[in-house]
Design a protein around this nucleic acid. Structure first.
Lengths: 338, 338
DNA sequence: TCATTGAATGACAGCGCTGTCAATCAGTGA
DNA sequence: TCACTGATTGACAGCGCTGTCATTCAATGA
């Protein structure tokens, strides 16, 4: 089935010959141009089917036809956040017959640059990227690439072309204000590999700013240099409470995975929520909201970010005006854990 | 930045001219061929850099060069399973400088066929697919495409070219035997949109077979025609226990998301695990293992499936022998919920 | 000294398709 | 009848690169 030497795939030329028309007419027919007669169309389609013709888009794109590939660069697929974004992207792209070509940067600017170069060399129709500290080269390539480029997730910095996301700093700030208004005063933080995840850093930054506004500061802080996970959150809270810092009344986690781990730790050691300890996360994941006591968190609209980014690319390709900045916002969820 | 008309990208010809060599030599230099002199190499690299040259792989692939794109077709990105697989794939591919080109079939054979046609038209180096009931056309295209094709997830059926996965039927069967050995007798099932997810169906099938071996049958069964989620599992268990079936002593869930929902329901209504009710899932997700009481489940090696599939493609491309079937197996986790 | 060898480079053709512009032709009104 | 219009179709060139074979040239040994 795959050992026999292939008898060369039929080309457009053969389809055209069989249908008794020229190559270009066959091309137009198969691409659904509306200038060909219904009869011609049918002849060509029949010829294509009977020969098992499979279009070669490499040749098409090289000859100046449009591409239906969109480069997508994400820092990770480890937690559900980026798959959610990817899902939104894919959804919207697929409706338009486009495909994401994926690259994972692992939060590394060098790898990111490599990926950009690599993906651009396929001359995609557009590029969507969740940046991880782009290098100068990266910016130059993107700026000169003459295709729609959408930077996603964060809108706290000025984009090369377009940006779709939310203010992570703003989300942290809003959460701090909300919690202070609810009467909490002794805050602690449990975070994951924060050096690499600059969005988590931005949230913490905003959160701290909120505390400062009220003349407060953190009473404790644990940061674990590992990717975020439920298990890590559980471990992190355990460490925090075992340390000699003042007992916090609320722990802000770097995200929901971590926060759910915190909740599980409380369940396991019999700390009652939210009386003895309150917990807040970030992301608004299904899992947090399905806990016996729903998690206090900030819902990020991840799929919507993906969808909107895809929409921006598609709009630009069809010549429409596109906003430079799109804020999809966030929604504070006042759950039962605070 | 994107309004000005682009002054046409420099081509290999210009790089070659600038370096004072022929096109083909420049091509070889930039592709890292070992036949060019170090001096030539440097001249060409300098010329390329100073011109901001960006390789055009469309032309390269069309001219007979290799592609570094691998088509990937998955049925969904909604729960963590397929992102995990994708992560494994991406990891391995990226190390070899390859990129997945993604398509989501939504468990629909027609869409799947469309995707296959579309992705193949880019002449990728290989194709990895988690099949959703392939059509006759799909099979024909793949069989005739003359590239490595890996069918992933399930190995219960005969593959077109290669298969990497585990026996879902076997996993269901093993779990049934394990639970029966532990003394459980009154089994019920809570599942999600099973018509579309034939792997969940295979597990249920195996599980039922295991019960039959022991002369047992299900005492209750709830199947909800929605994508699986924690919330759905919670709802499903609630429905099951509210129905008039005999009270089960163990509920088998279609996967861990659902099972965790079941655990949360028990917590919320005060059913103690595993005395009053036992629960088992499938997948071995982090979340289930981080519960105060770790979930009894079967760990599927999702990332490994992706890695192995990628490895198969790469091996085949480098001319090595590849196994037709790779069983990555599964691991039964006897947790505290049973 | 001369044929021989191997390393480095180059000329050429063509991958399969589509944009551009030109040609064809039936139908129309003067 | 004839120029004119619009709807179809076609000829041509070339997108940018790489495989194949040929060429060049210095180094080698007889």
């Amino acid at each position: 089935m795959n050992k026999e030497k292939s008898p060369r795939k039929p080309t457009l030329f053969e389809v055209a010959a069989r249908a008794g028309v020229s190559e270009i007419t066959a091309s137009r027919a198969l691409r659904g141009s509306n200038v060909v007669t219904p009869e011609t169309l049918q002849k060509v389609q029949e010829a294509a089917t009977s020969l098992g013709y499979l279009r070669n888009r490499l040749a098409g794109a090289l000859a100046g036809g449009p591409s239906n590939q969109v480069g997508v660069i994400l820092p990770s697929l480890s937690n559900i956040v980026f798959p959610d974004v990817l899902k939104g992207l894919e959804d919207r792209l697929e409706h338009a017959g486009f495909h994401p070509v994926l690259g994972i940067s692992n939060y590394d600017p060098e790898q990111e640059e490599q990926l950009i170069r690599n993906l651009l060399s396929w001359r995609p129709a557009g590029l969507v990227i969740a940046p991880s500290g782009m290098t100068e080269n990266s910016r130059t390539m993107l700026a000169g690439a003459d295709l729609p480029v959408v930077e996603i997730m964060d809108i706290d910095t000025d984009p090369i072309d377009m940006a779709v996301g939310m203010s992570h700093r703003g989300a942290g700030l809003a959460m701090a204000r909300h919690l202070i208004a609810r009467g909490y005063r002794r805050f602690a933080y449990v975070g994951h590999d924060i050096a690499r995840d600059n969005r988590a850093t931005a949230r913490l930054d905003g959160f701290t700013a909120g505390l400062n506004e009220a003349g407060l500061k953190m009473v404790g802080c644990v940061t674990l240099v590992e990717p975020s996970s439920v298990a890590l959150g559980r471990r992190g809270l355990n460490m925090l409470l075992g340390s000699d810092c003042a007992r916090p009344d609320l722990v802000y986690f770097s995200n929901d995975d971590m926060a759910v781990g915190g909740v599980f730790h409380c369940m396991a050691v019999g700390i009652s929520l939210p009386d003895q300890l309150a917990i807040a996360g970030f992301n608004g994941l299904d899992i947090g909201q399905s806990l016996p006591t729903p998690l206090t968190t900030t819902a990020s609209h991840r799929a919507r970010i993906g969808e909107t980014a895809a929409a921006c690319v598609l709009k630009r390709l069809s010549g429409e005006e596109t906003p430079r900045m799109t804020d999809v916002g966030f929604t504070l969820i006042a759950g039962g854990t605070s």
